[in-house]
Design a protein around this nucleic acid. Sequence first.
DNA 1: CGAATGATATACT
DNA 2: GTATATCATTCGA
Length: 198
Amino acid sequence: MATSGKKLDTSFYTRTDVVRLSRALLGKVLCTHFDGKRTEAVITETEAYAGVNDKASHAYGGRRTSRTEVMYWEGGHAYIYLCYGMYSLFNVVTNVKDVPHAVLIRGAVPLTGLEVMLERMKKSKATPNLLTGPGKLSKALGLHYSFTGVSLLGDRVWMEDRGIKIPAKAIAVTPRIGIDYAGEDAALPYRFVVAKIT
DNA sequence: CGAATGATATACT
DNA sequence: GTATATCATTCGA
């Protein structure tokens, strides 16, 4: 809490309106700090996964397994899932205990620790798409799927409000990506994208 | 457009 | 316990 940034606390993560919460996360700063390295990025793209009523969610219909267990925890934990064998996808667990809502962070822009990110990505220079896409984002921030269950109130992974305001006009709402298997729920407008950072 | 790549869920023996 | 299908993706042709 050294900067003007205000760390988001339990009262934010336990909000029950996961779709509006996803929108509220735009412009927030995702911070990681481990291995003596710190990275921060401004969130520009999110998707809501509305638990048991959402076919795209891993917890659809009340499925509860060792993997999805974290989603049933109280809001404010990290749910990081290994997809396609290569990419870790970073989600924020929201809502109260036993309600498996989550927000997938799909995109961000680097704020601090760009060199560390490039090193993790094995790239020599920044590209405009460095953090666009959940797989790349997790890799650049050092978020491995073994971090699942980490508290976002701790000192390794957390989010801050730096007072960045995203005008409503700059936000695009679209259907989610890569979930064609979800049937009609794939068309739900649960994805929020910031067109341009101000 | 299609391959890479491995944990997980589900349905079996 | 073992087998197989599946996946909230990315990169390169």
